[in-house]
Design a protein around this nucleic acid. Structure first.
Lengths: 243, 243
DNA sequence: GATCTACATTAACCTTAGTTAGTCTGCCGT
DNA sequence: ACGGCAGACTAACTAAGGTTAATGTAGATC
């Protein structure tokens, strides 16, 4: 159920402010941007490989995933998009999209025209800088994801993923007993972590058996953050959340 | 042997100009930046995890690799840096480095102070934009790398890597018979592709046997670009080299 | 030339994760 | 209540890639 009065621009600013200061004047300038909003059902493509867009799409509520497909059809999910993120920031300056984004659950998207955003960014170096910083963080996250896929074993990979999402949803820290909804099938988890759904299932069962997580439908609960972090070899530094 | 009169700023501009237009005025402003240069031997760390830098380091000549290490010590190389790239652009706006960069062969690095570069970028939105675009391309490359590690089999992974490097070194295309030097050990290749050195060896031997590549020391020759591309499932779109 | 060292290469064997093929469960629509 | 379906779960088997260990080879050092 989408909350009715989420302000897209506020979401975006809050996201940018995670990694850079946004002055009061910048905020005012931001709030002058015109936008329009739409709801999309789970599964809808929010961006398609090859697409050329005229508007930036801000994910206001819901969760989406970004993925690429090899020439022989297997899929790799390369990131999870959470609210506040601009789904197609790449298209602001590059032409064609080279990846897909799909909604995991119902998503509200707000659109701001490239022209308006480019103008804002050209007039306000500090806003340009905030977008830049946020893209640098995205790059940092993608490097950690590579490390997971390339070098962690399946169990640590799953645990690491669960840690990352937990922390991104609870940026001030994850007290023991924290729960969150992860509306992903095990097949999608597999595509995210470079594994098969069957093996994801084995690993999840293992984590549950060892009481590193508990589950209820798509809800994940973390009884002990420290123990999960340990199993994952997780270090949150790459998320750049503190400072 | 480093060529004596490489101009670091020119290298940087050329790199940026791959993905965005750089006006004559921007170039002039660029050339006013003060810099200093140094040579580093193969193996030297050019950036260390945790480091805070005061200068941007432009790779002027040579090849370097960026890597991260898991808590239990295995290493994943997450990108290859070629001349013109700023090795630590992240540190211009974020504090601590969260990855390492090491020289693969002898590298010339030129340093420009963060302060000077920030000033330039603040005064010239078009330069800010060029750095942004180049970072977006880096992000795009890292996504393709994830796709390789997560979903391509070992043989395609090696072939894909060889394709990417060939094209980045020969941005106008790779005619049949193109050769290049890849100063990487098989262990480093393994760390780049999420495989072991032993298995890299098996795959390389296979590619040689099938005449997809030929070798001489660290030199790679590609007899048929089309066949290598085929074996790799390679599509260069993600490199954003044309347009 | 003798030796050292780093790296490439190969073989034999092992482990992790993939594959296939099912059953089970809960939810949805009628 | 019924059937249909997507997704979770399991088991048996396979295969890709990892591990270990040995041999080969070319430069570098003395």
């Amino acid at each position: 159920m989408p909350r009715p009065n989420l302000n897209p621009v506020k979401q975006l600013i809050d996201q940018l402010a995670l990694h850079d200061l946004i002055s009061a004047e910048d905020r005012v300038a931001f709030y002058e941007l015109p936008y329009s909003s739409r709801q999309f059902e789970a599964g809808t493509y929010l961006l398609r490989d090859g697409e050329i867009t005229s508007h930036c799409a801000i994910l206001v509520s819901g969760i989406a995933y970004r993925h690429k497909v090899t020439s022989d059809g297997s899929r790799q999910i390369v990131s999870i998009c959470l609210p506040g993120e601009v789904i197609n920031l790449q298209q602001l300056y590059l032409d064609e999209a080279d990846n897909n984004v799909q909604a995991l659950n119902q998503c509200q998207i707000s659109f701001i025209s490239h022209a308006a955003l480019r103008r804002l960014v050209n007039q306000r170096p500090s806003i340009a800088r905030a977008f830049f910083a946020s893209t640098l963080v995205e790059l940092s996250m993608s490097r950690e994801w590579m490390l997971s896929i390339g070098r962690r074993d399946a169990r640590a990979r799953v645990a690491h993923f669960l840690c990352e999402i937990a922390l991104r949803l609870n940026i001030d820290g994850v007290p023991d007993g924290t729960s969150y909804e992860l509306p992903m099938t095990q097949e999608q988890l597999g595509d995210a972590l470079g594994l098969t759904a069957v093996h994801i299932n084995r690993m999840i069962m293992g984590l549950v058996k060892d009481n590193l997580i508990t589950r209820r439908k798509h809800g994940i609960t973390i009884p002990s953050w420290e123990r999960l972090v340990q199993a994952a070899g997780f270090n949150s530094r790459y998320l750049k959340l503190n400072g």
